[in-house]
Amino acid sequence: MNAIEVSELSKTYGQEIKAVDNISFTVDEGEVFGLLGPNGAGKTTTIKIITTLIKPSSGLVSVFGLDVLRYPQEVRQCLGYVPQAVSVDGDLSAYENLLIFSKLFYVGKRERDERIKFALDYMDLSQRADDLVKHFSGGMMRRLEIAQALVNRPRVLILDEPSIGLDPGSKKQMWKYIQKLNEEFKVTVLITTHDMMEADELCERIAIMESGKISVIGNPRDLKRSVGGEILTVKLSTNSVPSSLSARPTAVLGSLSIPPELGSIVSQEEDTLKIVTENGERAIPRIMDYFERLGYAVESVSLNRPTLDDVFMKYGKTSLERVGVYGEARTQRRAIVRHSR
């Protein structure tokens, strides 16, 4: 069954601004699905329409078959939403945050206490259960937000930029918890991110979004493969040119070729070869072996795997790295955390 179905969805502000422009995708039950794209691509707008916070201009969105416009409350009962900004209340303790939101989710009194205790333990927050959340670190706040999902048990967890402003350690920990939640509790997860590492690490499938449109949907591995194989850069030592050949290296390397099962040479500059191959890690020893048997000494080999950024470059117009929004968003979240009253 489709957990989320989005069909020909558009959201227009005023006459001009198309925040979301005719997009369609489905999220299968039990998968981790990512919307990847730079800030302003329309990811958050899409999520807000799914969570019934804003109304679509046109198109259909349903969650487990429930239309978001006709059954907004029922839809929200299925969803756990972790917005981009801090959404736990700093003036309440961790326990109280879980308690209040479980009541707003109508979790029965009997399950409530048990689940809160479990969630605090599971998220490693038991020690700080009665402390005010405003004294928590950014990572702890995010963990508390995930803990809410453990108490309310939504069928779909929607996270908007879950790792913004977290240090690398907390970010990894966050990924681990999201994965565990998906595997152990069978929660369907929809995340938005502009962090390619995150999309690569977490998502079974991603949709690349830019300027309100989805340019491609697929699993990260296939998408990277579609950009082209992995690239090996092999530098041969000019001092070790076999004596039977001429002393001028360019002439020597002029017409080098390798067996097709190892890959194919795409470019050659003096003593440096670029070889495209299916699986770079496996090809390295074989290629070295091949050249050494021919009598060349291999000076260095480096492996470049296509990243999602390459995928993005191919299907979108800009590079995520060049968009330069990452640092900005990070400062934003920090400022919010610091101002918590």
Binding site: T52, Q73, A85, G90
Partner: peptide, 18 residues
């Protein structure tokens, strides 16, 4: 407005509560 600037208001409105 304060709660809106954080995510708390969004969060409250994303619960099944009317």
């Amino acid at each position: 407005v304060w709660e809106r600037d954080f995510g708390i208001l969004t969060k409250l409105l994303s619960t099944p509560s009317p």
